[in-house]
């Protein structure tokens, strides 16, 4: 393992729902290393998604320290956090979350568009990424014209197009059949090796555990086991 990319210490997050109080994260401490593929597993409601939301700066937390690439994200304001996220983190969502109005290549180019890169340059890089995930020739197809596996490949290309150091995947294979899921995981593994990025994969799918460097088990907002 190389240097630490993400480091969380004693993260506590509580949700208030009316009078009820849900302790979603109860003192999570975890480091993620460079070039690592870490899987976060556990039953539904154990706090996996909450943790990756906190880790990626998408969700504020009550206490603890969270550093990404050495930067303390809890000390950043919303604008700084947004800029930081846009530059350093890539996301792959369970439901793909592609913009239905945009073509595959435009969806892939979105992180570059958001970063105000020139359109021609963004599309050229997006085209390369689409080729890398095996979707050459599908550039102009809208998400509705793609299969689930193809949509997830587009989402992966979108997560990687701006060369982030850290990639967060939330159930990337749960909407796919077994074969497509395997293809997607092989693709993710290959790409993080090539790009030298780190990745956290939240999953329930035990068929993809074999791709992990480490598997972190969570339960009731706590880490219960770390398996190599």
């Amino acid at each position: 393992m190389s240097k630490i990319i993400a480091s969380c210490k004693d993260i506590i997050k509580t949700f208030n729902s009316g009078e009820a109080e849900v302790k979603a994260l109860q003192g999570i401490t975890l480091d993620v290393y460079g070039n690592e593929l870490l899987m976060l597993v556990g039953p539904s409601g154990c706090g996996k998604t909450t943790f990756v939301s906190v880790l990626s700066g998408l969700l504020s937390f009550d206490s603890g320290v969270c550093k990404l690439m050495g930067e303390n994200i809890s000390a950043m304001n919303d604008d700084e956090l947004t800029t930081f996220r846009g530059k350093n983190i890539g996301f792959v969502f369970q439901a793909f979350n592609l913009l239905p109005s945009l073509s595959a290549i435009e969806n892939v180019a979105l992180p570059l568009t958001v970063a105000s890169r020139k359109r021609a340059e963004a599309l050229a890089l997006a085209s390369e990424m689409l080729e890398a995930v095996g979707l050459s020739g599908k550039e102009d197809v809208k998400p509705s014209g793609l299969s689930g596996g193809e949509q997830q490949k587009v989402a992966i290309a979108r997560a990687l197009v701006h060369n982030p150091k850290f990639i967060i995947c939330d159930e990337p294979t749960s909407s796919l059949d077994h074969k497509s899921g395997q293809i997607v995981m092989e693709l993710l593994t290959k790409i993080i090796q090539e790009k030298g990025a780190s990745m956290i994969v939240v999953t329930h799918d035990n068929r993809i555990y074999k791709y992990a460097n480490r598997i972190v088990h969570m339960e009731d907002g706590k880490i219960t086991k770390v398996a190599l």
Binding site: L58, T82, R85, K87, F91, A115
Partner: peptide
């Protein structure tokens, strides 16, 4: 929300 997650400012 997706765009904001990707770094789009308010």
């Amino acid at each position: 929300a997706v765009l904001k997650a990707m770094g789009a400012s308010i």
